[in-house]
């Protein structure tokens, strides 16, 4: 075996999958952050569990597509429920969100306990922190496998799914760039231009749900929540321009995915321990460290006009 063969076999696919998932979540996260809807990602990933359990109960298998459809359906149900409770009960948005996602998550856990899932592998822990480490590229023999179509076909299917989802999201952002940007910064102006801001907002939530569900399937909900918020928030502290903010967020998503995976897999070795720690958790931690650093030294960390405020 050539040098690095083990790396290609064990670590390359998880790193690429983690990076794709991180970017797919960070891209729509930029707009959610600017619209003060950063917690949508949180809500979506909490409700993915009941969606997956219901999909399992209906189909009786743990095939990928029913699960993803179930999770996406649950996300839509959750968003609709939040809206319903907000309107019918005149409940404040944050509280409505809290009511809905805790209830749906509780329902998911209860369903899981009540149904016979002994033969299959769904559990709460898996939903929370995924299993990035298990996405191994068995067919790889070394770097040369990257040029071998037969070996490439053996890559974990999550990689292709995430690549497709990422492409869809990029196309969506490019196609509706003007509408998204204007309705995010100045909804009134956007409406005056004839942009349907409600539809744009809903499309953004749907795009986020697609990204969340695809990423959730591969890497678990912690990375999803962290990547929706942390890289865009870090980027927001670096620049005032939307285009640059998105570029920064892609960079931060990539670095946290790669560094997080490497620290989780190889970090313990440096401390003399043989066992790796959770990659999903470590990726979120690295994203948090980046954000913490940006909060302290980011060039645009302060609110504009804050220095002039009396207190």
């Amino acid at each position: 075996m050539e040098v690095g063969a083990e790396f290609v076999q064990l670590s390359l696919a998880p790193i690429v999958i983690g990076t794709l998932a991180a970017i797919a979540c960070a891209l729509p996260g930029n707009f959610l952050l600017l619209r003060r809807q950063a917690l949508i990602g949180d809500a979506i990933s909490h409700v993915a569990l009941p969606g997956i359990v219901v999909a399992f109960l209906v189909t009786g298998t743990i095939a990928t597509w029913p699960m993803m459809i179930g999770a996406a359906g649950a996300a839509v149900v959750a968003v609709a429920l939040i809206e319903l409770i907000k309107r019918l009960g005149r409940v404040e948005p944050g509280a409505a969100m809290g009511v809905v996602f805790t209830t749906l998550f509780a329902a998911g856990v209860l369903l899981l306990e009540q149904s016979d899932t002994s033969g299959v592998h769904i559990d709460v822990e898996h939903a929370l922190y995924g299993n990035l480490e298990s996405l191994i590229w068995f067919d790889a023999v070394g770097w040369s496998s990257l040029a071998d179509p037969a070996a490439l076909a053996g890559l974990p299917p999550q990689l292709f799914r995430l690549a497709i989802v990422l492409a869809v999201i990029v196309v969506f952002l490019v196609a509706f760039w003007k509408e998204l940007a204007i309705s995010t910064f100045d909804p009134g102006f956007a409406q005056a231009l004839g942009i349907r801001t409600g539809a744009v907002g809903f499309a953004l939530v749907v795009a986020s749900a697609i990204a969340a569900v695809a990423a959730f399937d591969a890497v678990g909900s912690i990375i999803v929540i962290a990547m929706f918020v942390c890289p865009p928030a870090t980027a927001r502290l670096m620049t005032d321009r939307l285009g640059r903010q998105i570029a920064w967020s892609v960079l931060f998503a990539t670095t946290s995915a790669i560094a997080g995976y490497v620290f989780a897999g190889y970090g313990p070795l440096w401390f003399g321990s043989a066992d790796a720690v959770s990659a999903a958790g470590m990726i979120a931690t690295v994203a948090g460290l980046q954000l913490g650093l940006a909060c302290m030294i980011g060039p645009r960390r302060q609110r504009t006009g804050q220095a002039a405020a009396p207190h």
């Binding site: 917690l39 929540i225 962290a226 958790g281 948090g288």
Partner: peptide
Amino acid sequence: GAVLSVFFGLGIV
């Protein structure tokens, strides 16, 4: 969102 996910991630680690 940031505190929630990062602290939880660190906890999982």
